[in-house]
Design a protein around this nucleic acid. Structure first.
Lengths: 199, 199, 199, 199
DNA sequence: ATGTAAGCGAGACGGTACGTCTGGTCTTATA
DNA sequence: TATAAGACCAGACGTACCGTCTCGCTTACAT
C-alpha cells in the first residue's frame, strides 16, 4: 500500500501534471524493460501509482499513450541532417531513426502503436492523424530541402517519403534495427537517384 | 453445434486432414467477418468444432496459423506479371497485392501476423523464416527478371525489394489498400529508375 | 445539464436550500427510475448538478441520504388508522406500508438503507438511530392505543412491534410488496391475539 | 506468483472439486475476517488461488456463492429442538439461529445475501428459490410438529413462520444477534399463543 | 489379435488484462 | 465559507483470451 501520505492527490478540477508525468514515465519504463509485450494499462497504472480511470481519462486509447511516450522520448528527437546532398542526408536520417529505436522505449512504442492499429480502429486514427504527420516531419523536411536544391522533383516528395518510411518501418517491424550501413547507404542512393516523372 | 454423431474424431495416430481444413476455414472465416480484431484461438476453435489443444498442437503460434491462412487464401496467389518493363511490372504487382488484401482474409491475416510479431518473439521468427521468403517471391521474381534484362543492377535487387515491400506494408498497416493508381504508378517508376551504385 | 448561467452558487457560509432540494429530488428520481441498483452518489450528483463533496458534506453516509429521501417521500406518510380494533388497525397499517413501498422511491430507499447497513457500520448507526425510531412511530402508536384500550399488555408492545416490523421488512426484502390481503389479515389477527406473559 | 508446481490444474473437462473447496474455504475466510464489507470476488479468488472466471463459472452470482457458504457452515446446521412445547421450541430455535450467526461466516453470508438481493434481480431469485426454502426448513418443521400436536392451526403455520423469520432477520440486519433471552422468550410465547382464525 | 501410441473434442484451470464504475477525498475558482 | 466542478487513487466489477492440462474416446500401427 502506498503510504496514505505520499499519495498523489487531486489538485482541483484540472489535470494534475505530476500524474501525467508519472504515467508517461511509468509507460516509458515498462516499454524499456519489457517491450510492447509487457505493456499493459494495468502495469502502467501500478507503476505510476495512478488509477486506471485516470489513465483512460487522458489517453482513451493505448495508442494515445504510446504515441505520447514516443514523442516524449529524447531519443526520438531526430536532428535534421544538413550536409547538402540528398543521399547523404537520407542515410543520416535513416541511421538516426534506427539508432533512436534500437533498444529504446521509442522503438517499442512505435512497434506497439503499429500493432495496436491492426486490431483497433481508434488506434488507427491516432496513428494516422496524431502520429504520422508529426513523425514524418524530418523526412519531409530533408526531401523538401532537396527539392529546393533541385535534387528532387516536388511531385516525387510524397512517394519518396512513403518509400523511405516504409523501409524504416519494415526494418523495425522485422526486428532489424541494427546499424546496417551498407543497406542504408544503398537505399539512400536508390531513393536519391529515383525519378517518378512519366516518360 | 456439431451434432454428437458427426463429431470429428481421431483417425489414429496422425493428423486429421478434416480437422486441419476445418480450423483453417474457421480462421479464414473469422478474419473475413471480424478482421484481426476478432481473431482469437478460442473463437476459431469454437467455429471449427475443434479443441484448443488440437490447434496449438499443429500451429504453436497464432502467427503460424495466420501465415497458413494467408497462403491458403486464393486471393493471395499473386500472378507474376510479364509485360517486360520493370515500372509496369512493379505497378501491376503492387496492384495485385493491394487488391488481394482489400477486405480479404489474407489482408487481415497479414495485418495480424505483423501485429503479433511485435509482442511475441516466436511470431517474429515465423514472420522472418516462414512468411517473408515465400511472400516476397513474386517481388524478387520481377526484379530478377528485370536484372536479367539489364533494367536493374543485380546488387540493387535486395534493397529495391525491401523498398517495394515496405511501401506495400505501410499502405496495409495504415489502412490504405484502395487502388490508388497515381501513387502506385509513381512509386513503380521511382523504383524502376533508381540506381544504388556508389558514384 | 445546468447551463453555465443558472449554475447554483454558494449563498455564503450556510447550507443552500436549493442545493439540498435538488439533491433530494435527484436521489428520489434515481431510485424511482432504476431502484437501489442504479443508486450512486455519482449519479445523484450528476442529476442534481451538484458536486460530490457537497453531497458528502451534508449526508456523510449514503444511508443518511436514503433515510432522508425515505421520509421526504409523501407516500411514506403513513396515516394512523383509527378504527378501534387492533387487528383491523394492524392490517390497515401493513397495507399502508406495503402500498407506500410498492414501486415507490421510498420502497427502494428502504431496501437500499437496509442493504447499506450490512456492509457499512456507519449506515447501521443511521438505521438504528435516525431511521428506526421515526419509522416505527405509527406501529408503536397503534399498539400503544390498543394497550390503552386493554387489547394488548404494555409489556408486549415492544416485541409485537418487532414482529410486525420484521414481517413487513421480510416482505419488502424478498420483493413481495403486493397487496396480499389474506396474508396481511391473518398476520394482523395473529398479532392481535398474541399474549407474551409467562404462564 | 504461486509456484509453478503446486498450482492447481484442470483435471479435464469437468469441475475440479479441489478448486470448489478452495473457493468456498476462501469465501468463508473472508467473511469471517472482514464480514460482508470485505467480501469481493477478487479477494476470494486471490485467497483461493483461483481465477475469477472459474468462480463466475460455478457461481454466476455472488448470491450463489454466499448461499453456498451459508449452508456449508457447520454452525448453520440448526438442530431441530424436541421439547414438545411450541414456545420452548421456538425460543430454542431462535437462539440456535442467532447463535449460529453471531460472529460467524454464516451470519455475514446471510447479511450479504440479503443486501445483494436489494440491488440485483438474479440475487433475489437465488434468495427466493435456492436459499429460503432450505433455510426455513427447521422453522416449518417445528411449526408442523406443533400443528400435529394441536398447538397450532395448520392454516397459521405459514404466517407464523414468516413472523418468526422476519423477527430473526430484523435482528440480524440491525446487528442484534446477542443472546437476548428475555426478548426471545417473549416472542416465542407471543407466537405460540397467537391464533389467526377469523372470529 | 491385441496393446499402445497418438490424435481428437471438450472444456476446466490459473492468470492477466480489459475498459468501466463507484467510493470517498481533495483542490480550485467563484460567489 | 459554501458551492460546482471535476480530478485523484483505489480497487471491484464481470468478460475475454491466453496457453496448459486432463479426460474419455477412437483409430491405426506394431507387434
Amino acid at each position: 500500500m502506498p503510504g496514505e501520505k505520499d499519495r498523489r492527490r487531486s489538485i482541483g478540477a484540472r489535470r494534475n501534471p505530476a500524474t501525467e508525468a508519472a504515467v508517461l514515465a511509468a509507460a516509458r519504463e515498462v516499454l524499456a524493460e519489457a517491450g510492447y509485450a509487457g505493456f499493459s494499462v494495468d502495469e502502467v497504472a501500478r507503476r505510476a501509482g495512478a488509477g486506471k480511470p485516470t489513465i483512460y481519462r487522458w489517453w482513451p486509447n493505448r495508442a494515445d499513450l504510446l504515441a505520447e511516450v514516443y514523442f516524449a522520448d529524447r531519443a526520438a528527437r531526430i536532428p535534421e541532417p544538413e550536409t547538402g546532398r540528398l543521399a547523404t542526408d537520407l542515410a543520416a536520417l535513416a541511421r538516426s531513426y534506427l539508432g533512436a529505436w534500437r533498444g529504446s522505449p521509442a522503438g517499442a512504442a512505435l512497434r506497439g502503436l503499429l500493432a495496436e492499429a491492426q486490431a483497433n480502429e481508434a488506434a488507427l486514427v491516432v496513428l494516422w492523424e496524431r502520429f504520422l504527420p508529426r513523425w514524418s516531419e524530418p523526412v519531409r523536411g530533408v526531401l523538401g530541402e532537396a527539392a529546393r536544391r533541385g535534387e528532387v522533383e516536388p511531385g516525387d516528395i510524397e512517394m519518396l517519403a512513403e518509400l523511405f518510411s516504409g523501409f524504416l518501418w519494415l526494418r523495425l517491424l522485422t526486428g532489424q534495427t541494427d546499424d546496417d550501413r551498407a543497406a542504408i547507404d544503398r537505399v539512400a542512393r536508390l531513393l536519391a537517384s529515383a525519378r517518378g516523372r512519366k516518360v
